[in-house]
Computed example of a mutant assay.
Amino acid sequence: MRRFLGIGLIGLLVILPGCSSSGNERVEKETDASVSQKIIDGQTTKSQIKQYYGDPDNVDFKTKNQEVWTYTFSKTRTPVFVSTPFQQVQKTNKKTITIYFENNIVVNHAFSSANSERRDFHL
């Protein structure tokens, strides 16, 4: 009886849900519409972007007056009802905001949100 109880507890630990996130938490709740309300090409400045999102995760210098800033947020969760002792499922949502500057003014921006699922099988 104790053996079955031990196996059951181990199985329960394997399927407990988990959640982790990384990146800029200010990006987590953003949508294409909310980003487009904040960022207006040809008008929004670098300082305004910093007020909205803080320091960028990545800065790429194209020329002396051109920069690309990138902000990302990723959240991974392991749903309890999808995972089993033999299979673990991880669902990830990643959001990215890419902003192109010229002379400290936004000239273009893009928002993307992608969902993915990963299944690991254990024997």
Rank of each mutant, 00 (worst) to 15 (best):
residue 63 T to M: 10
residue 103 N to P: 07
residue 76 T to G: 02
residue 62 K to R: 10
residue 54 G to Q: 08
residue 111 F to V: 02
residue 9 L to T: 10
residue 66 Q to L: 05
residue 24 N to P: 05
residue 54 G to H: 08
residue 68 V to N: 01
residue 60 D to M: 13
residue 62 K to W: 06
residue 100 Y to I: 04
residue 15 I to H: 03
residue 39 I to C: 02
residue 2 R to L: 15
residue 45 T to I: 09
residue 122 H to S: 09
residue 88 Q to G: 11
residue 114 A to N: 11
residue 70 T to R: 00
residue 118 R to T: 15
residue 118 R to M: 06
residue 83 S to C: 13
residue 17 P to A: 03
residue 48 Q to R: 02
residue 5 L to V: 13
residue 92 T to M: 03
residue 47 S to T: 14
residue 88 Q to V: 12
residue 2 R to H: 11
residue 68 V to M: 03
residue 66 Q to H: 09
residue 46 K to E: 13
residue 36 S to V: 04
residue 14 V to I: 12
residue 34 S to T: 15
residue 105 I to V: 14
residue 18 G to K: 10
residue 117 E to P: 02
residue 70 T to G: 01
residue 63 T to A: 04
residue 10 I to Y: 13
residue 92 T to R: 12
residue 118 R to Q: 14
residue 120 D to K: 11
residue 74 S to C: 10
residue 95 K to D: 12
residue 57 D to N: 08
residue 51 Q to E: 12
residue 19 C to R: 02
residue 86 F to S: 11
residue 65 N to I: 09
residue 105 I to M: 08
residue 57 D to L: 06
residue 60 D to I: 13
residue 83 S to M: 11
residue 27 V to P: 00
residue 23 G to H: 04
residue 34 S to E: 00
residue 110 A to I: 03
residue 72 T to C: 04
residue 68 V to R: 06
residue 14 V to G: 01
residue 45 T to N: 10
residue 4 F to G: 07
residue 15 I to K: 02
residue 73 F to C: 01
residue 70 T to Y: 04
residue 9 L to R: 01
residue 77 R to E: 04
residue 71 Y to T: 01
residue 114 A to F: 09
residue 4 F to K: 06
residue 18 G to A: 05
residue 6 G to Y: 15
residue 16 L to S: 11
residue 46 K to W: 12
residue 42 G to K: 03
residue 39 I to E: 00
residue 120 D to M: 07
residue 121 F to N: 10
residue 96 T to M: 05
residue 55 D to Y: 11
residue 90 Q to E: 10
residue 40 I to Y: 09
residue 35 V to T: 08
residue 78 T to W: 04
residue 93 N to D: 04
residue 66 Q to Y: 05
residue 47 S to M: 12
residue 19 C to A: 05
residue 109 H to Q: 07
residue 57 D to H: 02
residue 19 C to W: 09
residue 42 G to E: 14
residue 109 H to C: 00
residue 4 F to Y: 06
residue 81 F to Y: 12
residue 40 I to E: 11
residue 22 S to G: 06
residue 27 V to Y: 00
residue 8 G to R: 11
residue 32 D to Y: 05
residue 63 T to D: 06
residue 102 E to V: 01
residue 27 V to L: 03
residue 115 N to W: 14
residue 77 R to W: 14
residue 98 T to L: 07
residue 60 D to H: 13
residue 17 P to C: 05
residue 106 V to F: 02
